[in-house]
Design a protein around this nucleic acid. Structure first.
Lengths: 202, 202, 202, 202
DNA sequence: CATGAATGAGTATTCATTCAT
DNA sequence: TATGAATGAATACTCATTCAT
């Protein structure tokens, strides 16, 4: 007598026209800014809609769930950071060490604006989603590449360990984006020292 | 329901005040654990009350607002971390540099358990409270002390800058509490290198 | 890192004080009336709350879900109808056939007011709940008893079949509660004829 | 997307009108099936559009409101049932009583499939529409005809009363479409008994 | 003072309907 | 005319906070 409701879409409708694509971008931008400012839980879907200039119904057409919205944001962010880190790994192969240390800091600083929203989403306790793991994993791989380029003689375990620390240094530097020159100088020194690896290598 | 108060051990004078104190501690413990597990927004006052064995009305008698509760938690946490950092600053004055670098890492790792709840609260974007600033400020002061002890020749600006980076290194190390020996070795090297300050000093 | 939210109550809080019991009754009455008037889907929880004089939050304290509310209503209704049908079965054993036919009609008519809400809930396509099956089953059992009393010579299959039809006649009569004497006379004749069972027995 | 219209079979004059007609039929079919499966409220206009192969905009061109759609469905259903009942009334005039009782049951069973969607719509409390009344009225008239044919001696009041009960018996039988032979035999006996009208006539 | 029932503003989400393309 | 993206009022449900007992 009773009948199960039909399957629900898990992904929002892909926008098929230019207008839709623009709208999706606007929504992601608005959501990113709001999440960065106030955290995942504190932001309401209504606010996201308002800030992006979309009606609440339109927002839900593309992102049928708050979590899906966060996931999409994380995916977009992941693409950007991966491109950034790929470039970084390349530079690790071509630049002399000190120049590369500076480049590393520059990349981290350039990344900073995106960072806030991304971090909030990654740290958010709920939204377990595999998105987070995937992102973390791809970043780690890039940092391993980088370390391997900088220091080709290292065994895989050392590479892993140093890559992990380098990953954290990346975040650390990004967290200091707004600071004065003095701090940045310290950071460059910190990174250069780490890459040169005197202490741990000896 | 409430923690059994050892009423007879005291002079019978202030059983209520003592009970109240214990209850406050229980509430703070419960809140700290829950915030660490699930984040500030996701935890309900009712849950805090239940986990601490207090009635919701009692919880509100002590902490008239969720934000006040978070603030109190942050204050308690601030006292602990300040003691820890004070000890660290002392060691900076007495230990040789390499030994101190190890001590620094040890302190950071020891701090890690507390860290989770505190971090959740500090990062929570909305709760503006002055508590955060005050905590940050006191931590920074301790790190300045530490740097000054390690490197007495530095001018105040350099001290400021290095203290800021040291602060972040503290968090970075704490974030690696669960990692293997290889990573820890890298971290010790990183900290030692930073404190020695070769690159930036030259 | 992430933690699952604690289990949610499936049953609403049992009222522990008189006030609470009265409130629960008021809510069930309001819900019953509204469901009967306008159907399950068309009634909003806010309306139920308003009509029962409770705040929406209070409604949800006792009935954490619209479905739970419907289930509770069905349970209450089930208790009443079972008492009614038990009495009917007793009368089947003691009254002469024609008198019993009249009693049957009277019982069905007496039941009519409750009927509307119950029927709406039983027919509702969603809310699969076992409540429905259980209710249907217990009613069927009572009608089997009744038939067995009226006509002790019947085999179990005949009893089943006649019980099923009797069940439907019960609903049919109840559906005519507001009609004039002429219709009621026809109904009494219909029931008497069915119980006497001339045609089918011969 | 739309059902392939046999455009060439017509004189080429009104391909649109034909297409529209087919589309309307498809929509009504889809809506009927969905309403029967899941109830009026639970079915969305978007689903109806999807199942009928029409765009949501087209659906609204033909049926400017969900209620209008339900009404149209009810009207179509009314036409069918009226034809059925007219045939039944004819048979009442020509068949001997027992044969007619069987025919009555057969007609009711044949009608059962349509019944589901119609019943859902008729029972739906909100949709007040005059459609329901009109349908009920025309059915009653047919049942009056039938009763008059079966029992020409009855006065108009008796006819009214018996017609009303016959109407309900029609629904009762239809509700047992899926049941076993034993139940059907009881139903035939019930109907025959009622038509013969021993008890009430005496 | 302690308790926990009551309150109601606020949140995510759905869906009938409109209208630009 | 046909299409399906856009709209926003309405809905079930949550939770910080209050207050009668």
């Amino acid at each position: 007598m009773s009948a199960p409701a039909p399957e629900k879409l898990v992904e929002g409708a892909e926008p098929k026209r230019l207008r839709g694509h623009l709208r999706v971008q606007a929504i992601l931008d608005a959501a990113g800014a709001l999440f960065a400012e106030r955290g995942y839980d504190a932001v309401t879907m209504t606010e996201v809609a308002a800030r992006s200039g979309a009606a609440i119904g339109s927002l839900y057409r593309f992102f049928p769930t708050k979590e899906v919205l966060a996931d999409a944001l994380l995916r977009r962010y992941g693409e950007r950071i991966d491109a950034e880190l790929a470039a970084l790994a390349d530079e690790a192969a071509t630049l002399p060490l000190d120049a590369f240390a500076d480049a590393f800091v520059d990349h981290a600083l350039a990344w900073a604006p995106d960072r806030a929203a991304a971090l909030v989403l990654i740290e958010a306790r709920h939204m377990a989603g595999p998105q987070r793991e995937r992102l973390r994993e791809s970043m780690r791989a890039r940092f391993c590449e980088t370390i391997a380029h900088v220091n080709p003689a290292l065994g895989p375990d050392r590479v892993e360990a140093k890559a992990r620390v380098l990953h954290q240094l990346f975040k650390l530097v990004a967290a200091n984006a707004g600071e004065g020159a003095a701090v940045l100088r310290e950071l460059r020194a910190l990174v250069a020292g780490f890459l040169r690896g005197r202490a741990a290598d000896g």
